[in-house]
Design a protein around this nucleic acid. Sequence first.
DNA 1: AAGAGTCTTGGTCAAATGACCAACTTGTGT
DNA 2: ACACAAGTTGGTCATTTGACCAAGACTCTT
Lengths: 210, 210
Amino acid sequence: MRVSAADRREQLIAAAWRVMTREGVAATTTRRIVDEAGMPLGAFHYCFRSKDELVQELIRRNVAEELAAARAGLVPGADVRQALQGSLSALWAKLCADRDRQLVINELTALSLRDPTMTALPEWKYEQYLAGVAEFLTAIAEGSTVTWDLPVPVAARLLLAVLVGSVDIWMVTGDRAAGLRTLEVFSGQLALMCQATDESAPEQMKVETR
Amino acid sequence: MRVSAADRREQLIAAAWRVMTREGVAATTTRRIVDEAGMPLGAFHYCFRSKDELVQELIRRNVAEELAAARAGLVPGADVRQALQGSLSALWAKLCADRDRQLVINELTALSLRDPTMTALPEWKYEQYLAGVAEFLTAIAEGSTVTWDLPVPVAARLLLAVLVGSVDIWMVTGDRAAGLRTLEVFSGQLALMCQATDESAPEQMKVETR
DNA sequence: AAGAGTCTTGGTCAAATGACCAACTTGTGT
DNA sequence: ACACAAGTTGGTCATTTGACCAAGACTCTT
């Protein structure tokens, strides 16, 4: 049966991802990949100039998937606290659903940071994350007619740090419930950092913040 | 000149660490290590049963160093906010001082999580971190005669997540100032989560927490 | 049916790597 | 001085890995 090179590329990328999640990035050799895909070894370099080319393409898609999933999980609501807590716990469930995936993401990021030609990918990823979270926070504020006490980009970075750090800790300890608790507590904390917007009078109400 | 096997072990571990920071964990082969240490190849397996033995010993020491440095940086003070902000910014400066070190730590953790015989090390590390941060928070509360509004272990996990996440983001984006800002904002936020302890009357003051 | 372009396949190569070893040297205690 | 333990060294081996290639097979157009 004949298959187009483009189709084989897809199959090889999918097979490589499976091997990576199952056995780790370091163990993902060209031979293991073609084995997993059920192809002869020669097929690999017919479809890809090099192993690096496959890996980079794989990373590119994975980052895009990650971002899409995260964005889909962040939905604003009427109440600030509800929106934060609901979105974060939904996102948490999604992240915890596949530990191997998170392990691979970590390994690939570490790899990218060592190769000067690939550092742009994780950089772009975090830029997108920060922009997405900022957008989310802005939408929440608008939906609930409140104003954030601190600059949105700063709040976004803090929220992203909590999220990334929680995943990191969970990957090692495996304590999913504790991570969820962390996010809930943080949601409550962040929800306090805004005030009702007074639309009629541009002067903001003075509120004791300490 | 004759050198004891124990001394050579030290030298090899030190050389391996230098190679790892400079060229990455993956590029740290036995030959690169002995080269860096200025020894003949044969010396390696005279001092270590295997490369794994060296790596595990290296990780063990590195984790111990990390913990010691972190504990040294966390010093309680009179004011809750001051203590948090001061300690975290000092710690931040220490962490940001050596990016390559953080890269290696990440790579080694990723490695440990794939090897069932090594997962105990990062687990122990985070346990120690959590215990250390909890101790720090308790000391702050006692020093300032305040009581935390939330369980100390929960607060500790949140603080650790913020720290770990900030390092993660900084490693990729390189924006040290933004990370510092994140920690400062979080310090202010966390400092609000406690109330003055009323020692004469065990009954705590009722405060609206929303 | 002829031919060109695309795909298929197993074999092969050079480099790198962890591990091992046998012969040799040095120091030390008796 | 002798012997025994400890340290030193360069060479060698089997395996793994990414890459390459030449010869053949299939398919579509003309």
